[in-house]
Design a protein around this nucleic acid. Structure first.
Lengths: 342, 342
DNA sequence: TTGTACGCGTTATCAA
DNA sequence: TTGATAACGCGTACAA
């Protein structure tokens, strides 16, 4: 049976209250007793009991805020489902989850909203914009003792307590591996990324190039273009790219705008349409897979991203400590037509 | 804030004890009070609090037995890791997990061991042999009020409370889809199944055939053979199959014996070695993928199988009720060379 | 049949 | 600085 505070208090001849004060660093304890309790606790290998902690925490009724720059992005539907699932489970532990969604990537506005929301929150989960202004706000909240968890995209130069989301480089590697198998190892590639300014997109391309160099001697890159995560721009740029490079027989779609690109592929009728690998098995992508236009999508477990990020924030509140890993990375799952039930 | 027993007792003017008796069907309650409490509880949408339940359950110290016919099967290493992870988490809730492994599929011996073990257990998780003798023993345990959860393989004609494991038919469908992509839709197939007597293997083949019929008009099946889940037999049968059918350019490996089959493939040197899709990304299979001999493996989340099966058994003990779904099915994940970190 | 009281492990409060 | 005590929600032994 696991060690309890009560056992420690008995063994070290102090009260449970004192043990609690020592173990949770609340201060107001005589140095010698502090040392004694720590020694006994360590010796016995004390690990706080989650059931007890959770029950006691119910009195405090934590509020966790979730702030997603997600409006208009179908990928986040699943993330939100995950957030809701975590909220439902944590309700038993006296946790309230507030979900806020935003449109657009204006860093100043985002920082303002973070600041306003934070007043009513004990922890914050958010999709940050990669901007120093947002990083500063995260650091301000962190300094005030609030755990801040980034989800789906990370941010540089901030002291967020944990990142929960995609392993972008690994996703790029898997995408290249999949194209290797789809093409028999020989391909003329077109890459359509979202934006050259988005860290994750660049990491995917780096992972892709890594595998290309290592495992795909007969891959050549014809052109790299952007979609700006937009179907219309994706359509136009893909159409131009395909017309200008008739040798292209494979497309790597790094981010959003998949539907637009696929429309362009259909417009530029080819005898052998290009093999297409993209990210995120959202409903429109699933349709494109059923129609044999997209051969494979790399999925990054959006449900788990939502679920795990909220759970991580709660764990931080409960234990008062950061999680063991400061990055919780999703698996990159390969989805094909037959993966999907009809 | 969620509804508690205390609130119900106050609102309906009876004691907490009475509410507990009603809600947990312990009897000895006047009919009118019973009805009243039920009505109030329903109206308030009472959901028992897991933290409280878990804490109270700690006094009882449940023991969950896990009995796996796993010795000599590397797939189960991951299942066992999942079992251990669940055991570690549940230790906080006063749960002990006993892990027992067996070699072989003798149904009489298995039933005997189940019977012996059950004396010290509150719940049982096992990989059953598909035999009426084992089904009878499961039913005996179920009748005595013990939750029995099957993991990885299910059994017909038993009243086990839940099955946690692979979706075999879906796995077969994904495997065929992967071969469709690997071959460009045109293939002469050889299938090497484990055993024609194993339900799951046959379900995989059925799923494979379903997709073959629907999406792969240019697939032809040259021969179907067994490995008996054994590398040596797999080696010999594959060698014979490949020699007798030189047109075979794709292999679907339904179960174990992958290494043996691949040795045969290497022995029968071909200019264009066959495309190979198999199940379970065990360490030897990973090696074969690195060597470009196996193109893809379909993985069935062995870790989750172990973890979820133990958690499910615990939930049954805690709530006294069967889980919402009587089958918890894993996703079939496609693993390729680049999915694996080196 | 019903109500009361205690314990599970932790935390917060109050009095000393 | 310390210890005793109550509270979180649930289960249950025991008394009425």
């Amino acid at each position: 049976m696991a060690v309890t505070i009560k056992q420690i208090s008995e063994l070290s001849g102090v009260s449970r209250g004192t043990v609690d004060r020592v173990l949770n660093g609340r201060g107001h304890v005589a140095p010698e007793k502090d040392a004694l309790v720590r020694r006994v606790a360590k010796q016995l290998g004390y690990q706080p009991n989650m059931a007890g902690k959770a029950l006691a925490a119910r009195k405090k009724s934590y509020t966790i805020g979730v702030l997603l720059c997600s409006e208009g992005n179908p990928f986040f539907e699943e993330v939100i489902r995950g957030v809701r699932a975590a909220a439902k489970e944590l309700a038993d532990f006296g946790v309230q989850v507030q979900l806020h969604t935003r449109k657009g990537y204006n860093d100043i506005r985002l920082a303002e909203e973070m600041h306003t929301l934070a007043k009513d929150l004990h922890a914050l989960v958010l999709t940050p914009v990669n901007s120093p202004i947002v990083a500063d706000e995260i650091n301000t909240l962190t300094d005030s003792g609030m755990p801040v968890v980034t989800v789906n995209t990370d941010i540089e130069g901030s002291r967020r307590i944990c990142y929960v989301g995609s392993d972008y480089a690994a996703g790029g590697r898997v995408a290249c591996g999949m194209l290797r198998l789809l093409t028999g190892g020989k391909a003329h590639l077109g890459i359509l990324t979202g934006s050259l300014k988005v860290l994750g997109h660049n990491q995917r391309i780096a992972g892709f190039r890594e595998v290309m160099k290592k495992n795909c001697p007969n891959f050549t890159l014809a052109e790299l273009e952007t979609t700006e995560d937009d179907d219309i721009i994706g359509y136009e740029n893909a159409k131009r790219m395909l017309s200008a490079n008739p040798e292209i027989d494979s497309l790597f779609l790094v981010a959003a705008g998949v539907y637009g690109v696929c429309r362009a592929v259909q417009d530029v009728r080819r005898e052998n349409p290009p093999k297409i690998v993209c990210f995120d098995a959202t409903p429109p992508v699933r349709e494109l897979m059923q129609a044999n236009i997209v051969q494979a999508a790399i999925d990054q477990q959006p449900f788990r991203q939502g679920y795990d990020s909220v759970q991580t924030a709660y764990q931080c509140l409960l234990t008062g400590e950061p999680p063991k890993k400061d990055r919780i990375l999703m698996e990159n799952q390969i989805i094909i037509r037959e993966s999907i039930l009809r």
